[in-house]
Amino acid sequence: MEYLIIIISAIFVNNIVLAQFLGVCPFLGVSSKLTTATGMSGAVCFVITLATVVTYLINKFFLVPLGLTFLQTIAFILVIASLVQIVEIVLKKISPSLYQALGIFLPLITTNCAVLGVALNVVTKEFTFGDSAHMLNLGEATVYALATSLGYGLAMILFAGLREQLAMRDVPKSFKGLPIAFITVGIMAMAFLGFSGIV
């Protein structure tokens, strides 16, 4: 039951792009085509989940016991950067087809603030799934990270669909490109606001 609440809350109610404003740059950058948006979503999903698990463990068994939590930011970004590199190398070796699909997005993910944002949120913030406020345990953190990244994918794919339609419309000159994209996201965010309060 609690996992279900985490999943619904992370995907819809607190959608990472539309409610928390994380990972907006790549969200706009690669959403002009549906196929690239899908590829990027897959890569982000993979990296966010993996990075959250790894940084959670590093924080719990290394930074906290040594009293080095003030180094969280620097440690996490290094972990994420190296993780992305490792994923890239491993993927190239074991699944060239998947690498072809996700490969070009991987280097971009290091500077996607959604990854660092989720990793930091999980270890610093108390969450209120269920009826008490508490820090997430490893299982909950993993589900939260996975659900959050699915929410990222959902928002990105929906938005890419809208943008493909938008590209064929005749928009006023000053609105062309990003301005109309922002206004579209604004309306999408309004729609997602309708989910607030359901969990």
Partner: peptide
């Protein structure tokens, strides 16, 4: 209220960008 919440952020940025484009060009 919508302007303090998430949708307002996107809308304001979008419209300011329109204004900026208009003036800068």
């Amino acid at each position: 209220l919508a302007f303090v919440m998430a949708p307002g952020a996107f809308l304001v940025l979008g419209y300011l960008m329109v204004l900026f484009n208009k003036l800068a060009k």
